[in-house]
Design a protein around this nucleic acid. Structure first.
Lengths: 331, 331
DNA sequence: CTGAAAGCGCTAACAC
DNA sequence: GTGTTAGCGCTTTCAG
């Protein structure tokens, strides 16, 4: 726990000024090469590393890209892997940040504000609910939740994906299909709801309002909704959960109620997070390409940071149905 | 992209000094409550958020915990989720950092040095190769790679896990069992090698040095090793890869060589990252509890940061064999 | 109760 | 080619 050497320590040990050390370390011109060598030797000997904070405070460029998430949960972790892959060969460090109160409204504004202009040169915000953030650095949003943003965005086709999910259910022969939605104020959530209704309409099935509930992507709310829906005498034979976490919770509730999945109840989710395929039974779902989402956002951000204007600033990626073990024809 | 308001802007708008703003924002004593109210109102109006960097530069406490990784790959992403879960209800922000040259030796020293004492109040380092890092903040290492560290550590039982893997193979009837190791200088890697040999010895099988190679956890090296091993006339009927990434690459090479897994070759890995179960065929492996690893490290770090001395400073968690579709008896 | 002023470690002008 | 100096935005004594 001894004190980390500062640039002053190096300067003193090398017998030069701090300015010279700074120039030597950063490879600036105007320093004799033997001085550079000497300084670098002292740097190595002392194990000096410039403080990211102090330098970023002055220089306004840090070589760090930030990924802002509400929370490190499965979805954002997958995104992060994608961003990491895309940035692996770039010269950028990657910093992922999650505020302590991820759930609180406005986390993205707070995090961005705390980091931008100083610590990071650019940011990727994952599932922000607020997107009109004024910042000093380029920002790309992944799966933004509110209306059309002025921010460049990358997301998957939630509408189309939801159609795939519900259509799959209708094609299996289900007619009583429940839907447990995400947060009603969120864009992707609304799109999934709309897709569900469209598929139902396409199959000539009327929407039963008692078979639609709001889970808000929150475990407790999903549980309440699922319990109520599944205790009905005319309970649905299939439920579409607006994301995998929702769907997994539905499966759990069904099990508690003594219902066999998929015999008594089919369940399908959305996302295909790793947990979906590891669940028992493995969850049928609609896969969104989370790695690609992250990688595309990274590419877009890099372009923005180079001062370019990306040709596509609102990328929408396709989804794919992944039928696994929680779906079957109705009895 | 307008400039973020600084504390000076707030002070000017509120007609007070920056010192007063600082005190009001941070809830320090010695400010009239009506002044506080007024300042806070201005803060809200302007959308001011203190710069994490600037404050950390002065105050030495930031309320941020850092997770340092070489790279955001599957293993570290799982750890991160575990840490995130454990810290969800704490007051700490979580910051995960990966330097641009994650592969380079000494990344952990560099990252830690750049962040510690300034940006973060404590750190969890994932799979560091260097652990004698002198720092100003408490540090916990997960799965450290070198000898007994003076640092508190959390890791899984690599030795026992490797025994499980190889024993499973011998029990299936394999006698020619290859091993593609990780980096020879890494602790967990050495332990897996040792476990493999022990299980072989237990089964009365002599170690054939031609069936042991070093993959260094690097795709290219694994490929070379696997190709060489599998092209031998007396090729092994099973290979144990020191981690899942290694094993997955072995499966790939086998396929290219026209070998059917598991009919012609059994493959088993180590870790059970999400990718293992999603692979086709699904990878048999030894599961290490990555979430728990992360959560335990977080708990330990929190204790350290509170100034406590954790009773256990070197935690070793058990592993579990997960037999899936890449293992079968030899022909 | 409030404000002026001194830095935290570093970089970038600008002198020498 | 090298050193001096002025801040970056903030917190913290210490006066008033």
């Amino acid at each position: 726990m001894d004190r980390r050497p500062t640039i002053m320590d190096v300067a003193a040990a090398a017998g030069v000024s701090v300015a010279t050390v700074s120039k030597a370390v950063n490879g600036r011109y105007g320093v004799a090469s033997h001085t550079v060598d000497h300084v670098l030797a002292v740097v190595a000997e002392l194990g000096y590393e410039s403080s990211l904070i102090a330098s970023s405070m002055r220089s306004r460029r840090t070589g760090v890209i930030g990924v802002l998430v509400a929370d490190f949960e499965p979805f954002s972790a997958e995104i992060l892997k994608g961003v990491g892959e895309a940035l692996r060969d770039s010269a950028y460090d990657l910093l992922a940040y999650s505020g302590s109160r991820g759930a609180a409204e406005g986390w993205e504004r707070r995090s961005l504000s705390r980091l931008s202009g100083t610590l990071i040169d650019g940011a990727i915000i994952v599932t922000p609910t607020v997107v009109n953030v004024g910042t000093e650095v380029p920002v790309v949003a992944i799966d933004p939740h509110t209306g059309p943003a002025d921010l460049p965005t990358v997301e998957c086709d939630s509408f189309g994906g939801a159609i795939q999910a519900t259509r799959y259910l209708t094609e299996l022969g289900h007619t009583r299909i429940g839907f447990i939605a995400g947060r009603p104020d969120l864009r992707s959530s609304i799109a999934r709801d709309a897709g569900h209704r469209r598929a139902l309409a396409d199959a000539g099935i009327a929407v039963d309002p008692r078979l639609v509930a709001t889970g808000s992507y929150r475990q407790d709310a999903v549980r309440v909704a699922a319990l109520e829906m599944l205790r009905r005498p005319d309970r649905p034979t299939a439920i579409f959960g607006a994301n995998d976490t929702t769907a997994l919770e539905i499966v759990k509730v069904a099990a508690e109620l003594g219902l066999d999945v998929p015999r008594d109840l089919s369940v399908i989710g959305f996302d295909d997070v790793p947990e979906a395929s590891k669940a028992a039974p493995a969850l049928s779902t609609v896969r969104q390409p989370m790695h690609t989402l992250g990688a595309e956002a990274a590419g877009m951000l890099l372009a923005l940071m180079r001062g370019e204007t990306p040709k596509v600033t609102h990328l929408k990626l396709p989804t794919r149905l992944v039928a696994r073990a929680t779906t079957a024809p109705p009895l």
